[in-house]
Computed example of a mutant assay.
Amino acid sequence: MADVARLAGVSSQTVSRVSNGHSSVTEETRRRVLSAMQELNYRPNSAARALKSGRFRTLGVVLFTLATTGNVRTLEAISASAADEGYAITLLPVATPTSTGVRGAVTVLGEQVVDGMIVIMEVRLLDAAISLPPHTHVVVADSDAGDRYSVVDTDQSGGARAAVRHLLDLGHRSVVHVAGPAESFAAQRRAEAWRLTLEEAGCPVPPVVSGDWTADSGYEAGLALAADPSCTAVFAANDQMALGILRALHEQGRRVPEEVSVVGFDDIPEAASFFPPLTTVHQDFAEVGRLCVDGVLRQIRNETAERGTTLVPTRLVVRASTAPPPGG
Rank of each mutant, 00 (worst) to 15 (best):
N71G: 07
A50K: 04
E122S: 13
R103Q: 09
G264P: 06
P326V: 02
D228A: 05
R57T: 12
E287W: 02
E28Q: 12
V62M: 12
T314C: 15
E270D: 13
T96F: 09
Y149R: 08
Q38H: 08
R307W: 00
Y149S: 03
P134Q: 01
D239M: 09
S157T: 08
L225N: 06
A224V: 15
A201Y: 06
D147R: 12
R315C: 09
C231F: 10
H22D: 08
A128T: 07
V106M: 12
D147Q: 15
T65M: 12
E270Q: 14
R31H: 09
E287Q: 12
L109A: 13
A128K: 14
A83V: 06
F285W: 14
N20M: 06
R73T: 05
A236E: 08
V123W: 01
E306V: 00
L168C: 06
C231L: 13
V288C: 13
S174Q: 12
P133L: 00
V260Q: 10
R148M: 05
G21T: 07
R255T: 11
A179M: 04
R190F: 15
V205I: 11
A187W: 03
S46W: 04
L249R: 04
A5E: 01
R49Y: 14
L63C: 14
L246I: 05
P313R: 01
V4T: 05
A286T: 07
V205A: 05
D84R: 13
I118A: 03
A82M: 10
T136A: 14
Q283C: 03
S12T: 15
E27C: 04
G116P: 13
A215I: 05
N20T: 06
N302S: 13
L198R: 14
R30I: 06
L246P: 00
S99V: 05
V138Q: 05
I130R: 15
F185D: 10
A226R: 03
A82R: 06
A48K: 04
V234E: 14
D147H: 11
T154P: 11
L7A: 00
A323I: 03
L223Y: 08
Y219Q: 02
V61R: 01
S81H: 08
S184R: 02
G104S: 14
A186E: 07
G86D: 05
H177C: 12
R190H: 07
N45T: 11
F265T: 09
Y149H: 11
R290T: 08
D147S: 15
R43H: 15
W194F: 06
D266R: 07
I300L: 00
C203A: 15
